[in-house]
Amino acid sequence: MNEIKVVVHPAADIYTNMAVDEALFRTVKKNTSVTLLRIYRNKNHSVTLGYFQSAECLDVEFLKKNSIEYVRRITGGRAVLHGDDLIFSIVGTIDSSIFHSSISRTTKNVAKVIKKAFANLGVDVDASVRTTIKKGDTIQNFHCFNSLTKNEILIGNKKIVGFALKKRAETFLLQGSIMLDLDRRLYSNIIKGSVGADISDTVTCLNDCAVEGVLADDLTDALLTAFAAEGMTPRSGDLSSDEWSLAEELRKKKYMDSTWNNNPKKYTEEGINV
């Protein structure tokens, strides 16, 4: 039986949340660290862009008008609208029971746990068997929840959980978003030229599918029970002071830096102490 260190954080701004995930990823060491599961939410609606995505597709005026901040992730994939979701990150090495050199195997392991968590809530789901993501940012391709990777979680062929990963040698960060609720007006308007786009065929949320309302705490409990059922005993913990310090540096010098968020090729990491 393996242990998984569990950190449940109160809702924070998107800059802090991305910085904490990256700090944990940078400090994980092969053979010495247990796998870590972090569960958190964003205080406000916000958008995260995939590492390679262009920020130019965002409707910045709409975002400003609706007080929606945006930030670039270090993981791949497409844009996610946060605020009505529960977010989780898993950090670990290839030695763990989650991560594998095959990306498909890794996401399959995670999908298995999430499927169990949903079953704990009385919700049946499927896992996608195909990948639809292609190069380029189009209206159809810009949202994470409009593009599928194998093993992502579907209900009635609509996506409800998205994954994105970062891999460096044998260490991994997986970031996942589970839609509890969905503000369809915001979702449909964050990308230029997509006003009023119909998303009813591509994305759903837990509270549209569960018999009874599901709160973030219910989903958190269901996830922890599912990890335990998969042989990973949850053990509560928190970040070390060094990890918090690094997260604070990353927040100020990277995630709040418009160069990183808008033009990452020009961004340099000078002054961040690992």
């Binding site: 995939g50 590492y51 993981t75 791949g76 990306i103 990948t131 993501i133 994105a164 891999k167 460096r168």
Partner: peptide
Amino acid sequence: ESFGTLESSKTISELF
């Protein structure tokens, strides 16, 4: 040392 990155299956992998 890392000299580049590539994206596949929503995963950013560094090239060493």
